[in-house]
Design a protein around this nucleic acid. Structure first.
Lengths: 203, 203
DNA sequence: GGCAAATCGTTGCATCCGCAATCAACTATA
DNA sequence: TATAGTTGATTGCGGATGCAACGATTTGCC
């Protein structure tokens, strides 16, 4: 299962000439796929402005993408198995708890980084589960609060330790203190840049 | 739009006593939500084994989660706008290109970290777009290859520069060289740990 | 060789999500 | 105060995904 080029094709010119491919209509089929893949020189800096990634850049970016996928899947499975709560619901419980128990739908959507309709449906489900209830907003007749129920809080308290253990084992304990600081600072800057670009508040 | 406690409630004991909440059946409604949120002491180490996060840990973990959400959304929008290709399709094109132009469905699913049915549907769509075709596998009668078409390769080449520019601007250029190395190394370890746990190959 | 078990890709089904449209309620301006 | 424009939440709809089940094929074992 060796994989020479660490895929994503983002640095080092990939495979030299250009891979053969069959026309969309008929596949010629005389291809010998793997063995002649050009070995890639590491640390090749971006050529012009057109953008290849150095191997360090590549590692960071692809590691970021794939770690997130794999990590979230595993954590979600674990959470569901242990407490029956999906990762997204857990996130809602935490946000509500941190906000003092209640949050306008709009603000909840903002903190979760989901659309408004997404938040509506999410709270629908969690209301069915008895973990939140809706309450009309007295100041603004259009508004709805999502309110954490005692059942919801119990579920949060019950699932937090195991979830945090999972996060520690798979993420935090793989990272030494310097890296932790570096990562925290880097992501803060990333979010700040995205805030600047989109106008949304992300921090 | 101030937000005192950096939400996710993962360090520092959150709000002291326990937030009031109404019973699921009837919301009493006499809550004064925000202002008395207990100020949080930063850098409080995990108390026992039950797991709170230090603020550094919290920053890294939450930054990781939120950056990914925000970043992928923006990059996907940009990619779709510029070239009509969704981020997922781009990933497929890259994987195929790196593999020399063709990949068994199973391997493609593995590299994309999606389910097999997910890969099937994905290739269905991309085949409709003319970016890939299917080819039977001669060695294994069960197998199918997803094969990059010349059209697909053209699309990849056309979208790569702009996409990479976006990745640079929003991610790589927010990170200095030390941080880049730290992040790359950290994620590699994270993936290795997940490989150990799940048995799948992720690197 | 022959049969059981495993693997590959696909499909039905259910779930979840975002966009656009909608209705209700608030705000600003004349 | 009247009216237009904005904002909040919900709903219909289509798209994308995973799980379980299925048929086809290969592999392992006797």
């Amino acid at each position: 299962m060796q994989r020479f080029a660490p895929d994503y094709g983002w640095f080092g010119g990939g495979f030299g000439p250009a891979p053969m491919h069959s026309a969309p209509t008929t596949g010629a089929g005389s291809m010998t796929p793997g063995p002649t893949a050009a070995p890639v020189s590491p640390e090749r800096l971006p050529d012009g402005a057109e953008g290849q990634l150095t191997s360090d850049e590549y590692n960071a970016w692809r590691g970021f993408l794939r770690s997130h996928q794999a990590l979230c899947r595993v954590l979600d499975e674990e959470l569901q198995r242990d407490t029956g709560v999906p990762f997204v619901h857990y996130d809602v419980l935490v946000q509500l708890s941190n906000a003092g128990g209640r949050l306008r739908m709009r603000d909840l959507a903002g903190r979760l980084l989901v659309s408004r309709s997404g938040a509506t449906r999410l709270i629908d489900r969690m209301e069915r589960d008895g973990h939140v209830i809706r309450e009309r907003c007295s100041q603004d007749g259009r508004g709805q609060y999502a309110v954490l129920t005692s059942e919801g809080l119990k579920v949060l308290d019950r699932s937090r330790p195991s979830h945090l253990r999972g996060v520690r084992q798979r993420f935090l304990s793989q990272i030494d203190d310097d890296q932790l600081l570096a990562i925290g600072a880097a992501f803060t800057r990333v979010l700040r840049e995205l805030e600047r670009e989109t106008g949304e508040s992300l921090l």
